[in-house]
Amino acid sequence: MADVLALERICKSYNVGTPVETEVLHGIDLTMRAGDFVAIMGPSGSGKSTLLNIVGLLDRPTSGRLAIAGVDATDLPDAEITRLRGHAIGFVFQYHHLISAFTALENVMMPMLVDRGRATAAMEQRAADLLALVGLSRWKDNKATAMSGGQQQRVAIARALAMNPALVLADEPTGNLDTASAEAAFALMRRINREQATSFLLVTHNLELARRCDRIVEVVDGRIAAPAP
């Protein structure tokens, strides 16, 4: 089976062609197999978010190759990139998780709606199932703003799973939650990983949570450091 993620010598520079051009990532190699649950750790400003954005096809590397779910995305045109992103990748962010004009259920439906253009009964059913999976069936008709941070993050996790992506990316998903909510969100992702073999790549500052991942990748100054214990 193809790797879920394959990065080869990924470099990223900001402000290319200006006097303040700076290279932030200096040749990252990283591979993930289907079902991997990987934590990225590292000090602030070391390039973790930059790396995650490149993996998530939100940004392009300055050089190097990347393949997602067996598709070489290095030279794909923008429209194809957008499509691949919608189908192969789910996102969970630290802040501003949900779209406030929609209910919890609608937020979970959103990636499918975006893809297919019109709502269907099947979509609604899948979204309801996902909300049940994250334990929020009762809140499905709540607007995002009427939920706690922990609940919102669990809706965001359900949403990330909507298109049944090969890889879920989470940038400090628990960074803004209290301990209990953080634990709940992490446990949920780990459980989904075990039950559905969805791969997760998450950035975290929480060593205790990171230890419960399959692997920890340490990024320091735009390079992957020696593997942690």
């Binding site: 998530g56 429209a79 501003h96 406030s100």
Partner: peptide, 16 residues
Amino acid sequence: SKEIGILRAMGTRRGQ
């Protein structure tokens, strides 16, 4: 802008 960013992240095309 944040919501637009999230929509784009979940695969929304520019045209949409």
